[in-house]
Nucleic acid binder design. Sequence first.
DNA 1: TCATCTTTCCAAAGCGCTTTGGATTTGACT
DNA 2: AGTCAAATCCAAAGCGCTTTGGAAAGATGA
Lengths: 343, 343
Amino acid sequence: MNLKELSKNLGLSQTTVSRALNGYPEVSPATRQRVEAAAKTFNYRPSTRAKGLATGQALAIGHVIPMSSKHEMVNPIFGDFIAGAGETYFRHGYEMILSIVDDGDEKQIYEGLKARRAVDGVIVHGPRMNDPRIGLLNDLGLPFAVHGRASGYGHPYAWLDVNNRSAFERATDFLFDLGHTRIALINGLEEMDFAHRRREGYASSLAAHDIAVDASLMRSGEMTEVYGYECTREMLEKGNAPTAILCSSLISALGVRRAIEEKGLVMGKDVSVVTHDDALSYLQNGGDVPIFTATRSSVRDAGRKLAEMLLASIADPLSPPKQELLEAELMVGSSTGPAPRKD
Amino acid sequence: MNLKELSKNLGLSQTTVSRALNGYPEVSPATRQRVEAAAKTFNYRPSTRAKGLATGQALAIGHVIPMSSKHEMVNPIFGDFIAGAGETYFRHGYEMILSIVDDGDEKQIYEGLKARRAVDGVIVHGPRMNDPRIGLLNDLGLPFAVHGRASGYGHPYAWLDVNNRSAFERATDFLFDLGHTRIALINGLEEMDFAHRRREGYASSLAAHDIAVDASLMRSGEMTEVYGYECTREMLEKGNAPTAILCSSLISALGVRRAIEEKGLVMGKDVSVVTHDDALSYLQNGGDVPIFTATRSSVRDAGRKLAEMLLASIADPLSPPKQELLEAELMVGSSTGPAPRKD
DNA sequence: TCATCTTTCCAAAGCGCTTTGGATTTGACT
DNA sequence: AGTCAAATCCAAAGCGCTTTGGAAAGATGA
């Protein structure tokens, strides 16, 4: 059923039917009701493509997910973020279109999306330090919003980020308060902006407590369970092992715990662990009492909010880009405790 | 830059330019080259919407992800599956449209996608027993392919599935071979088709070994780490605890291991564990030697293949629906060993 | 040289919608 | 009854592409 058929069926012009359906005032209430009823019974919905052509809008937002072909790793937070954003799009009648793209092809993809007028805007995932995508999108004039930030880009742009720096500073402070001084950091890949900021927060706390940064206590890599395990095992085997570990992801925290327990140590007693927790739906940090002490911030919520921000900026293109910094909450669980006393 | 401008620029008609770009034969090689060069320099790409309107194709595939609003759980395999499918779409010039939908709204969403002619076909995720979506999509006449199967639907339809039954039967057999007889099953939600099939495979092996199914050794729920942990803890605390556990997901297997080790037992010695492993990129089953003995099947690969299947069926609408059953491979890791001798 | 194919290109219609600019009807008010 | 504005509705243009049905030009064979 298309507009023409529907209007013929109603004995009205396409104009009137279109206006009735889109809430324009030039239609009598009676007619509008009649039209709406007919639309419902015939299950009429305007063709996305025709509507888009006529209005010049795509009513779609693009999500371009970078994937380094090297490790083929899909970011585990991706699903929950998308779920949050999807909620927002659904409410606003937008569609979400997804491109999973090899690192190298990204430029081409953004240009394609723009040239083909396939989307009204895009969300940028996984920003890196000095990420070239921000500049590219600005040049293209394609509205966008970034999940995270990209240090090193001079001009303002729309983003939403967790305050990674303060979260990790606070977490490190917390460990100091418990008496720990040898605190390790198992972080995400250095080139990722969030990892950079977390390290800064960590280093800042160390500095405030007059403890020098010890390179042997800092790791960075892709945050898998195995990675957490291996880093921890190595650190615990060497002399002068850390008494506390800061970890960038709950998944690798599971590996950290495994390494600790494998060595016959007790987490929260012999070794304390604090992790960041994205509150993923399939990876909850325990039940009532959190297993891990964690800096927590829901990535799904971030998805909802960032989508909202992008849609708002599309609706009002002249407004300056917005930013939003979410504070992670520190949840104390059973993975932390006072530093063991020296023998 | 649009077609009109481009063709004016070249001194050709829109027809000729369109034909040159779309590989029609009625264009001289010289002209074609000239057109292609111009398209490249002006970065011309036909508008998706206009092209779609003209051709009647959407060049897009819909993925409708169900999410029960009750637990708000996003399936963790989703990201990797999408990544695989996305690869295929990219190769074929298709777009992927994602809708994350509350269980109840699904019908409405499919009808909307169809009525608005927004997609050429859809992938059905997470089929349940007697899943009503299959019938609905058949009635709508919207091409589709299912990731998994939906027992109870009479007519043929396109699907791709892992042979869950044989995988779990084989895994159970394997445990019997090691001397285990008290084998527990920690499974996904019973209403999910895959969980049903896995239980069948498990039960079939028990029957073949003249062991009665013991309801106290079977659990089903959402496959989180915590769920694996709690099920295992309960089972190990009761008398007559299982000596082996079959688990439906690597994530909950991590919880299983935690419960085992917390009790001071050794996995692979006191309690053997076999899990299904979807080969998720962010959750690898150890390095060279798998940690868990597992029935393994790459869900990303499934995404690639199923997308290919759907595109083929769209290209050739009259062909009968295809099916593909993937066999999981049994990878022996260090989580299994001979059954402990009775004291 | 002429008729007949090929080759190469084009004008215009059409895809399904929105929207502009008018036309018609209705109603209120002198 | 006559006037004017408000309320309703409509025909047609246009969004950017593909595709149909020719037309013009060039090549071929008699």
